[in-house]
């Protein structure tokens, strides 16, 4: 008997397998931390080069 056609399951929604970034919440937090670091770095530019 022919097996019933099955719809393949959707690809899993996995975050990158990097320590600290194993969930999407971790990825979003990392992006916000990088943003804060970037703003801090930009804010320091006129202090360092004056």
């Amino acid at each position: 008997m022919k097996a019933p056609t099955q719809t393949p399951p959707p690809p899993p929604d996995e975050a990158p397998d990097v320590p600290g970034l194993r969930s999407w919440g971790g990825v979003y937090r990392a992006v916000i931390i990088l943003f804060v670091l970037m703003v801090g770095l930009l804010a320091l530019l006129p202090v360092v080069f004056s």
Partner: peptide, 16 residues
């Protein structure tokens, strides 16, 4: 680095 100091002197590096 000198170029960045010149830019800073003209307040062109005030990013935030």
């Amino acid at each position: 680095v000198d170029a960045l100091h010149i830019a800073g002197g003209f307040e062109k590096l005030n990013a935030v």
